[in-house]
Amino acid sequence: MNTAEKVRVSIAYAVSLASISLFVSAANVLAWLGMEIPRFLAALAIISLVPLLSDDIRKSSKLIAATAFFTIFALGVSLFLADHARIPGDPMDSFILLLVASLLLTGMKNAVKMLYSGLSFYIVGTFLLLAFSGIKIIILLADALDYYVNCIGEVCDPYGFALIPSIVLFILAIPAVYPYRHRNEFRRGVER
């Protein structure tokens, strides 16, 4: 695979990340409203198929296969999160994740064409996702520390660590920086 193809694969991957972000975003709203998170919400993974709208993806069977794979991957991750993760139910979290998903999806169209205008949305989207999930993980640790500080002198149960979606999102977002490292292979686009 040449670099352009690798970059396109990782863009398809990032779109599946966007669909997972959308799932977590929607789940957060439901949790905030005090509702159960239905498993069929994981069907949002279908958004991972969006790259197929682009000719640059469709013309390569390898890329089509990768997109299909990432869709199933996103479905799997979403189902896993629905079953095992503690969704915080914070509406601001869903706003930020919605923003991340829209940035990644907006960037997709031009990023597969290897244009700067696409890469720029892509970079900001990935960075925001990393910052968001990273900060949430730090906050989780701080919360645990606070719990134990407030426990001094009392008998307490151990802190109930739970899997939060941000842990998964953070790990998944790390490989998505790949196109950024190949930014110099992108082009400015057609001259006016």
Binding site: I123, V124, R183, N184
Partner: peptide, 14 residues
Amino acid sequence: VGGANITDMIDHVV
């Protein structure tokens, strides 16, 4: 140097 201007790209979005 051609190459990517990261600042311009980020500004385009933020």
